[in-house]
Design a protein around this nucleic acid. Sequence first.
DNA 1: CACCATCCGGACTACCGGTCCGCTTCATGC
DNA 2: GCATGAAGCGGACCGGTAGTCCGGATGGTG
Lengths: 191, 191
Amino acid sequence: MTEQRAERADAARNRRAVLSAAEQLLTEGGGDHVSLDRVAALAGVGKGTVFRRFGNRAGLLQALLEERSRELRDAIENGPPPLGPGAPTPERLLAFLDALGAIAEGNATLLSAHGQACAEDKYRDPSYQHWHRHLGTLFSEARPDLDADFVAHAVLAAFDGALIRHMTPPDDPRRFTRSVQQMATALLGRD
Amino acid sequence: MTEQRAERADAARNRRAVLSAAEQLLTEGGGDHVSLDRVAALAGVGKGTVFRRFGNRAGLLQALLEERSRELRDAIENGPPPLGPGAPTPERLLAFLDALGAIAEGNATLLSAHGQACAEDKYRDPSYQHWHRHLGTLFSEARPDLDADFVAHAVLAAFDGALIRHMTPPDDPRRFTRSVQQMATALLGRD
DNA sequence: CACCATCCGGACTACCGGTCCGCTTCATGC
DNA sequence: GCATGAAGCGGACCGGTAGTCCGGATGGTG
């Protein structure tokens, strides 16, 4: 049923080429510098290839993001505490925000571009849903009186590329994460 | 110095026509249905006119948003409490979120379109800066231990068109605002 | 009523995301 | 090795977009 024929060798090669071309364009120019024409050209590949592989612009950026965050997702599900299961809720929340913040701070332009491309259906992105579910669970354990579903969305809304850039001075690369953690702590604190 | 020659009559007429055309397209179709070609055509005006008046797509949407929120801005600066000055900080904060939430709930598609168009320099939008300053002041009064500047950005980040649509069931049009207020209250609460 | 700054219109450019289809390349069975 | 069908490929092509530009029309003013 879910049986998939293995990916052909050239297809795999091209997929990697496209991803790394997109990555390069992203770090060189701004997020809107990554047009699919350019990605295809830099990857030495036809435009159609990019689309067959990733569906559309949003899919491509989503794949990049997914690549960057797979490790964290595994650590949350099966890793040791405090990231993985077992630690008390507040510790686990702060550890999660620390890790997600690190990813976000290192990929602010990717985040902007992804947000821009996803536009409406950002909330169907499997990565997003995963973070949201995790946050929602933690908040609903710690603060059952709040609308945990909303709070999870709101906290994730702060992980916006432009905001991160705006909140990250060159001499303090982790200010964003600290502020997010501080806010989350305030949200956890009972009245 | 800051002396401005009065706007010519045809210019004023066209400006209103363009704004109301944009408004109409926005409510009819989705946010990306509002192309500047279409706006110009519906307004019975040349494309150049739209651009001279509003600079670019972002400027047009900004102007619409500004129109929608001018009243609230006045009420905050000179109106009676709890919106205006004089009320205790928590009451003033909740009143502000109530009013801003109402505007946001009624203009979710405009908000999406504006966010999309502004992309990077959303934080230079005078409207945004105004709300941010207000929130920042309130939070820094109530919670000097937090990073009020960041918290203000984070709260405003929740006012995202797609999120609002996602959080607004047909039978409960104010759920978003309630949840925002609840979260803000949690943020105010001392440990 | 004449004059000129201001404003107007819409053709034009450059580019974008996305589609399509004839051709190539890979994996597989012999 | 080699034939063969399926999977993958490339890039011309399409409809649409934001933004520019300038010859000509239109307003206010003295």
